[in-house]
Nucleic acid binder design. Structure first.
Lengths: 216, 216
DNA sequence: CAATGAATCAGGGAATTTCCTAATATCTCC
DNA sequence: GGAGATATTAGGAAATTCCCTGATTCATTG
């Protein structure tokens, strides 16, 4: 199995190279430090698998590279390797032709499993993100697009209250801001938490930032 | 030369381990996935050098860990390993006792050089950041009396708790994370709120973001 | 050595939040 | 017009937080 590694961190390139070359069925034929170089390496060596770090500068060239490589070299399976367990990145990666999605925090074994899976023609997604994927798949008929879009998922009041909760305001303060009772705030809050699947304040904050409902 | 590696990315831990163990004069004696574990590993193995990723959760415990380790184990040289070529991080790292500062995008040779340098008693800073350091040194007067600098204003515990409060964690959760009592968390919290002049959760969040104590 | 700051823990009482269930008034969509 | 979603409010009990005061230990500093 011939493999190319693309990551802007030298450490990660070396690390992977050593881990992979230690496997009997794998061999690193080239490494790249950015998206362009990655494309050239694929062009030159036509590897079985390429590991791509999505967050490579400049811009989003990891994603761009994914698209170009999967289009021009469909036989080279692409595994996205990233620090972020972000839904959006996952979706975009898969839409751009990636066959695998692995977090850098995952143990080595998982990475090697992922490589073998995509080489065998399967798709590998990090377990933590699979349920997001499944939910997206299940409701893809009626909601066509965007069942993760808070603007379609939540009511006006809920959209008004969520950012305030995220910013750290208490129920009482929110009630005063919106001229409604504390009990009403509680009701809206627990409803949107149910809807989205949030169960704590940190999760609400993270969600609000991810969905750009608040800015800093 | 006995070395400990602390990084929340499994890939980086494995990568480094292999690179370092390949050197004849170096040996990785332990690895850690977060700041607390890093401290315990240093405590247990008292290595010559520890490589610390600064962006390890929870909070900014990479920096906190730097302070604690350099204080309790001055013989263990600390090299900060980070993705960010951020001035602030560099300054804070050095002030907290780090002896080296290396970017993950640097080539392996540089990392090995850095390890050997700090082991020999020198300080190693990534070349690109040296000029920043020099400029800061030249105009060091204005930073001297910086009463807005949280790292000078707050204690280590307070610096550890503030980001967690900002992220929305409750006192109880923070107490569990840090293995201290709820009452202690309350005490630290109200103390740093007094010190800085914060009187609500939203203000804490805003402050934490402005001072880069948390990232999104 | 005394003073200070830091970190730890505690008690008590008030305020707030959380978690239930439950009811009513709009409003829109078919 | 009626079904269903949305907005509003309520009550009560348990959990949590907040706001005081106060105390101990340890390290540093004057």
């Amino acid at each position: 199995m011939r493999i190319v590694i693309a990551d802007d961190h030298s450490v990660v390139r070396s690390g992977f190279s050593m881990i992979i070359n230690y496997q009997e069925d794998m061999e690193v034929v080239a490494t790249a430090g950015d998206g362009l170089e990655a494309y050239r390496m694929v062009q030159k060596y036509e590897p079985d698998v390429i590991l791509l770090d999505i967050s490579m500068p400049p811009g989003e060239s990891g994603l761009i590279a994914t698209g170009k490589i999967s289009q021009d070299f469909p036989d080279t399976k692409i595994i996205i390797l990233t620090m972020y367990d972000d839904d959006e990145y996952l979706f975009h990666s898969l839409k751009n032709g990636a066959k695998g999605y692995v977090l850098k925090s995952a143990p080595d074994e998982e990475l090697l499993d992922a490589i073998r899976s995509v080489y065998a023609g399967d798709t590998y997604v990090h377990p933590k993100m699979t349920d997001v994927l499944v939910r997206q798949f299940i409701t893809q008929d009626d909601m066509m697009e965007d069942n993760t879009n808070p603007f379609k998922l939540l009511s006006k009041r809920e959209l008004e209250i969520l950012p305030l909760v995220a910013k750290g305001y208490g129920n009482k303060e929110i009630a005063e801001k919106l001229f409604i009772s504390v009990k009403t705030v509680e009701a809206h809050k627990s409803r949107f938490m149910d809807k989205i699947g949030l169960s704590s304040r940190p999760e609400i904050l993270e969600y609000a930032i991810k969905k750009k409902l608040i800015e800093f």
